[in-house]
Design a protein around this nucleic acid. Structure first.
Lengths: 225, 225
DNA sequence: ATTAATGTTATCTAATTGTTAAGCGGGCTG
DNA sequence: CAGCCCGCTTAACAATTAGATAACATTAAT
């Protein structure tokens, strides 16, 4: 299991803390914990987590206050904050998002849901931080503009087409299985038939030519080198 | 039949334990047993099994708790956990998978089903852990790209051909019987005549030359060293 | 020399992928 | 708000190719 990121979990109930911590570790995350906001800040400073999971209702320093302080600190520009809120207190949802939280998850927590959401959030983050452009063969694949440059020629791809090409081009020569592609381009909550990929491949080939994407029958697709 | 792996079986009913144990040993597995979770942990620590077969309902320490402890221990990152669950208690199926189990098998246990499932699981494991590429003689056999490199030359094999060559090359000099090959390349649900292998061998030789794969008449094939 | 095992070729089928077209829904513009 | 455009998905059909088998040829062992 690959190490995808660091997460700081903050909750005043020790058993919930352990429960979440256990599930995240299982998933391959590096997990830190704190029992309240006051405790959390210095830990966050030191460990620079990718994401902070923050209970709203806490003694000493509640989640909203903590979130505001975190968001005010430029050290944490790259840090996502996700609130844990009891289902009833939906008001805090709004207030929380006002405080700068990037998302929220309702208690009671189901491991599958938790993992799925966090994976999605962090995948988004990783994507944002990923190299903004790739140069392969005669192509310049540019995230900034979502355009493919071939010499002077500019070629526009639709978002999914772009993401798919970007993925393949990120490791030229490597074969990506359909499973692989669905997971990385579509995400966990995949609700598409894998044949959809074929159609996107077709459109990319139509726009760029057949020489870039190769088929490995029974396995998947790859960027030809 | 070659020794494919170590399995720890945990169940509180001695006769079930013996029944499973007997069937697994017959299949060539190295089998350890324990009567409950508490007993199982130290044994697991010592023997480092490839797979743990865990009854859910047990006194002293039940399967779910045991599973959680196992999964929390980084010593067992490479260990699969499979639950044994009574058919009625399907709820535990979900809970069990939440606890980190990799699969589950419903009681009552049929030996054939058990063996088939475990073989499948362990084969998957072995494949995942397998080196992604092999260098032998003047060949570089690369799973990433599904290509064979000979110097600058790239040679493409069909999937089955590739898998077959990969298998032989994974242990140069070792003779693989047809049985062996069918099991590893085709899987358990083999519904092919073993002469099919000959044809694939032929195609590989055609593409790479005759010097790589040797025939041991009456036994099988091997990668020549 | 006889026989069993393997090599080789050709053919068929089933699985996989390519391709086209149609439907749906969101967002934008007038 | 209506109407249109566009991106995404799926379904349906076509094309392709990997894979399986049978049939016949050849080889090696006793």
């Amino acid at each position: 299991m690959d190490n995808i990121g660091k997460i700081l979990v903050v909750d005043d109930e020790a058993d919930i803390l352990e429960f979440i911590s256990y599930n995240l570790k299982k998933e391959g995350y590096e997990v830190y914990t704190a029992l309240n906001g006051k405790e959390a800040l210095p830990i966050a400073k030191k460990t620079k987590p990718d994401l902070i999971l923050l209970d709203v209702m806490m003694p000493v320093m509640d989640g909203i206050e903590t979130c505001k302080r975190i968001k005010a600190d430029s050290d944490f520009d790259q840090t996502y904050v996700v609130f844990l809120t009891a289902r009833s207190e939906d008001y805090s949802e709004i207030e929380g998002l006002d405080a700068g939280a990037d998302d929220y998850i309702a208690k009671p927590i189901k491991p599958k849901v938790l993992i799925t959401r966090l994976n999605a959030i962090l995948r988004r983050k990783i994507k944002e931080m990923a190299a903004p452009s790739i140069k392969v063969k005669d192509l310049f694949i540019d995230r900034e503009s979502f355009l493919i440059y071939r010499g002077e020629q500019k070629i526009a791809l639709a978002r999914k087409e772009f993401e798919l090409l970007f993925l393949l081009a990120s490791k030229p020569g490597k074969v990506f299985t359909r499973e692989n592609i669905l997971e990385k381009v579509w995400g966990d909550e995949v609700l598409v038939v894998d044949r959809t990929i074929d159609v996107h491949i077709r459109k990319i080939r139509e726009k760029l030519g057949d020489e870039y994407i190769g088929t490995v029958k029974g396995v998947g697709y790859k960027f030809e080198v």
